[in-house]
Amino acid sequence: MGKHLVLQTDFGLGDGAVSAMYGVAHMVSDEIIIGDLTHEIPPYDIWSASYRLYQTVKYWPKETVFVSVVDPGVGSARRSIVAKTNSGHYIITPDNGSLTHISHYQGIEEIRSIDEVTSRLPHSEESHTFHGRDIYAYNGARLASGEISFEELGSIVTMDSIERLPLIEATCNEQILEGSIDVLDIRFGSLWTNIPLDFLKTAGVAHGDQLQVTIYHQGKKVYQNIMKFAKSFADVNIGEPLVYVNSLVNIGVAVNQDSFSKLYHIGTGTDWTIQLRKAPKIIFE
Rank of each mutant, 00 (worst) to 15 (best):
1 M>W: 01
2 G>E: 11
3 K>L: 10
3 K>Q: 13
3 K>A: 07
8 Q>T: 01
19 S>F: 05
28 V>E: 10
31 E>K: 12
38 T>S: 15
40 E>D: 15
41 I>M: 13
42 P>F: 12
46 I>W: 04
52 R>F: 14
55 Q>I: 03
57 V>T: 10
59 Y>R: 06
70 V>I: 14
71 D>C: 07
79 R>C: 04
86 N>Q: 15
87 S>E: 15
88 G>P: 11
90 Y>I: 02
91 I>C: 04
93 T>V: 12
102 I>S: 09
103 S>C: 11
104 H>T: 15
106 Q>A: 13
107 G>M: 14
107 G>F: 12
107 G>S: 13
113 S>N: 11
122 P>K: 06
126 E>N: 12
132 G>P: 13
133 R>C: 14
138 Y>M: 10
139 N>D: 08
144 A>Q: 09
146 G>Q: 04
150 F>N: 04
151 E>G: 02
157 V>E: 10
159 M>T: 07
162 I>S: 06
164 R>S: 11
164 R>K: 15
166 P>I: 04
170 A>N: 05
181 I>L: 15
182 D>L: 10
192 W>E: 00
192 W>D: 00
193 T>H: 07
199 F>D: 00
199 F>R: 00
200 L>F: 15
202 T>H: 04
204 G>H: 07
205 V>L: 03
211 L>H: 07
230 A>E: 07
233 F>L: 07
239 G>S: 04
244 Y>F: 15
247 S>V: 00
248 L>Y: 04
252 G>E: 02
254 A>P: 04
255 V>Y: 05
255 V>H: 02
260 F>S: 01
260 F>H: 02
261 S>P: 03
266 I>Q: 02
272 W>V: 00
273 T>P: 09
276 L>I: 00
276 L>C: 03
278 K>T: 01
